[in-house]
Design a protein around this nucleic acid. Structure first.
Lengths: 200, 200, 200, 200
DNA sequence: TATGAATGAGTCTTCATTCAT
DNA sequence: CATGAATGAAGACTCATTCAT
């Protein structure tokens, strides 16, 4: 049963093919971000990677660890991308639109909601690891906001709170209301709302 | 320790105690909102209600149905509360602060993230039911925004988008950054950010 | 919940409507004969009768008892019908065809197979009750065979064994091979096979 | 009492012991044939095999699949045995007695009755698989009958119907009436009944 | 007479995890 | 490096049964 075409032992690694470990991390990231913690089984991840469950255990000690690794990896990549975009030589508003556009493009889940679901399975340390990784993004944005405030480009607000707020608003991208619009148009609309406020 | 075992058969119903069905719906709402779909077991709900799993099945056909009932109930209650607050006789900004304060008070999870997790377990119809119930809240807020726009009280923006945006920002309440502050102060800060925007 | 249009208390019994008890016995017979013991739930029976499970318990002490009652009733009815048919004033062979035709008409399950499934749930006494009821039919047939043997109408065989054998062969009626033919034609074919044997 | 708990992981495989998969299939066959579909729990099968339920699921996707595998295996084995016996170099009547004796030896349940019970749990395809496997036996018998008819050894009857009939009659083996007799004697009696018929 | 509400035990199934190879 | 084979624990769901009304 379980038609097994794969022979055991190390398969010859062709160059430029990603390693099993990388594949696992990548697919796991996608699945966890899309479906949450509990709803994703190791079986599912293994299948998506074309390996067996046992192989995952060879690289990661267990589901919590894999989850932690996957999420911190995602967060780090997001941080880097965000940082890069914010270094561009443009007015702040345009840079925020750029960042927003990118984030809207990838469907993203609410961080705290996912974490809440996983909380009971993760160790305190793992929770912290992921949380810290995620805070990174907001700190980067906040840093840029703070600089702009200092330079008198924008109104004085709490930069970290503002960063979180912008980030949160981008989740509107998942909503029905966003379905008709391109990421670019929506990003512009959202940042504008944020930029000008409601006041007349 | 075996003392709290119930015997089968109809229990003598004391007056004014809430019915089992209500209790179940209520506790289930809390748990699902706090932990998501998969992470909550019927066992857990049953225990929280002081009944057995089988009793839950007496009232609800299964986990998906209970989830649907629980979430739509929550959403409807929230709609009503929100509607009531927005009817108050105050300037819009104050009313928004009021609504925000209330929402920040209750820990709330991101709707779409929870739904994404549950999606694979729910029927198309159930998904729609919940979604429609949730849209209600935003439509109410949007309605009030639209009126204020017409009356020239606030800048012209897309009211529904704005409603979703405000709603999303309130999820900051779950964040570390919010921990030190009272709901009232935080609400004021967030609405202010929204109200004045970043522009100088 | 459970939209309950029925008021409690004794409903006015219209004449000629069968009593609840009879209905239950009848529907239960049908379901048990069609699906076996385990595969039929009291819920299912209750629903088929338009009453609640609890009502069934009002009339029968439990599933085993209901099963016993249902099957013995079926068997007794079958016995009576068979006896009547065999009293007719016709040659034996014609009477056997008549009996066969009737039996083929009703889909029937193998008695021992059904009993085997139920065995672990029934008391020794209940098993015996059903078994005795069923044996009745074969004894009736055997009685008529014995008489015909005495009168030199047919070859000398073990009448009871022959009765069981004929009875068993009639289960061919459930088979694919029987699907194209009318009960009458099939009955004739089977009895003929039995009557003449294979020998040339 | 906890002594027979296995630890997880691959057990050292002793030679010549049958594989778990085979054991499971074998025990499952026995139990299903003896007690039917619903009355047999996977727990029960697992225990009979000295493994856990989860192990069964490692080899079979679920109860319906295991049932299908078990029954088709039984039917195939029976076909082979029957075919072999019918190839023997003896007069047809003796060969039929041989086949009958073997079948009477093993307690056997009525196929259609078992299937009826399982029907609602099996897929259309599974039902067909089992059914086809079972038809095999009758086709083999029918083939031999047909040949004997051609060669003028026996009277002309519908061979397939006759095969089914003989098969059915052998279920008398399960009856009380058969209890006193050896399989051989009973087989001879039954085939004789079939061979000579009732006619004088 | 009949029911609504509840239970405990048991079912199938899935999952994360382990370990010999 | 990677797997096949197995496990214990837990989850959703169903069922026969009970009892106050």
């Amino acid at each position: 049963m379980k038609s097994n075409l794969r022979t055991p032992g190390r398969p010859k690694r062709k160059e430029q093919e990603p390693s099993v470990q990388e594949t696992v991390l990548f697919k796991a990231s996608m699945l966890f971000m899309e479906l949450g913690y509990e709803a994703v089984s190791l079986q599912q991840i293994a299948k998506a990677c074309g390996v067996t469950k046992a192989s995952i255990y060879y690289y990661y000690k267990g589901k919590p660890e894999l989850f932690t690794a996957a999420l911190t990896a995602v967060m780090r990549r997001a941080s880097e991308r965000t940082a890069a975009l914010l270094e561009e030589d443009m007015p702040l508003r345009e840079r925020l639109i750029l960042v927003s556009e990118t984030k809207l493009g990838r469907q993203h889940a609410d961080f705290e909601t996912i974490m809440r679901e996983a909380r009971s399975s993760l160790s305190e340390e793992q929770l912290d690891d992921i949380r810290r990784a995620e805070e990174g993004i907001h700190e980067i944005i906040a840093g840029h906001l703070a600089r702009s405030i200092e330079q008198g480009e924008i109104r004085q607000t709490d930069p970290l709170l503002t960063a979180y707020a912008l980030s949160a608003v981008l989740m509107v991208g998942n909503r029905e209301i966003a379905k008709g619009k391109t990421a670019e148009k929506l990003a512009r609309e959202i940042v504008d709302l944020f930029w000008h406020g409601l006041e007349k």
